[in-house]
């Protein structure tokens, strides 16, 4: 593993337009190996759009993204997971008819090789691969306290639970960089505390660098090493949480003039 501090991800001058809307406007920042970076900004600031660029679902009009010194823009979306970038979705993007276990097993897809023919013939190495996939998925279900739901279809589970299933699925590909889009959505105070601990464990024990989009200021400020602030597609601040929290531009643009940073939700 490269030394902590070297950038694992570099976003340079990223610009995305949807018709007349400029969703991202020349955004640049780095994410260092081993860090938790918070990405914040009011609704519509362009955070999810940035994630979608990183997973190659959107193609920016300008700028570049490099991951471990390799440009992502040359790759199609389905090659991103195998490079080591995993993600969750703000509004959930699970496979509703698959069970919780199967959802997480799909997450292992990027790390497995068997194809149509070898699967149809169920060759011995395919059986082994399948066994390892199941093992890995089960381990993640245990890690995220989802074991009892293994055989339950993803459809019909509570939002907070599904968010954890997404996290398990994202971790299944053994990402070096994890993108999490509003993981605290719909959680109560206690659950947010548990989530903070969980993200820390993911970083510390699994060595995963995390880029975290979140509205819950308490959570972001508590666990981020660095915070990047977007407003109307533009980066307006970047730095350690304590400094960003005091930044007058951030207070004005994001939090409302008289409100102290910690007060929002």
């Amino acid at each position: 593993m490269p030394a902590p501090g070297t950038p694992i991800l570099s976003v340079r001058d990223l610009t995305v337009r949807f018709g007349g809307i400029v969703a991202l406007d020349g955004v640049s920042f780095d994410v260092s190996e081993g860090q938790i970076v918070g990405l914040i900004g009011p609704n519509g600031a362009g955070k999810t759009t940035l994630f979608n660029c990183l997973s190659r679902l959107y193609t920016p009009q300008r700028g570049d993204i490099s991951f471990r010194d390799r440009s992502l823009l040359a790759l199609p979306a389905h090659r991103i997971a195998e490079l080591g970038i995993g993600r969750t979705f703000q509004n959930l993007a699970l496979f509703p008819t698959l069970t919780v276990l199967q959802n997480v097993m799909v997450g292992v897809h990027a790390r497995t090789r068997s194809d149509f023919l070898s699967n149809a013939l169920r060759l011995p190495w395919v059986r082994r691969e399948e066994e390892e996939t199941r093992e890995r998925a089960r381990e993640l279900l245990a890690f995220l306290d989802l074991e009892v739901l293994a055989a339950h279809p993803a459809a019909g589970l509570p939002f907070g639970t599904l968010k954890r299933v997404e996290l398990a699925r994202a971790l299944a590909s053994r990402p070096a960089l994890l993108l999490v889009d509003e993981p605290a959505g719909g959680l109560n105070h206690e659950e947010v505390g548990a989530l903070a601990a969980l993200l820390r464990v993911i970083r510390e024990r699994r060595g995963v660098t995390i880029l975290l989009v979140e509205h819950h200021m308490g959570l972001v400020m508590q666990i981020s090493d660095t915070v990047v602030v977007l407003d109307f597609g533009r980066k307006i601040a970047e730095g350690p949480p304590a400094r960003v929290q005091r930044d007058p531009e951030v207070i004005r643009a994001y939090l409302g003039v008289d409100e102290p940073a910690g007060a929002r939700r």
Binding site: S55, L57, A77, H78, R79, I80, A81, E82, R87, F89, A93, L94, F95, P96, T97, L98, V106, G107, H109, A110, R169, S173
Partner: peptide, 10 residues
């Protein structure tokens, strides 16, 4: 079930 998510999973 979800083509975008499938793509994101590789």
């Amino acid at each position: 079930d979800n083509p975008i998510a499938a793509q994101a999973m590789g």
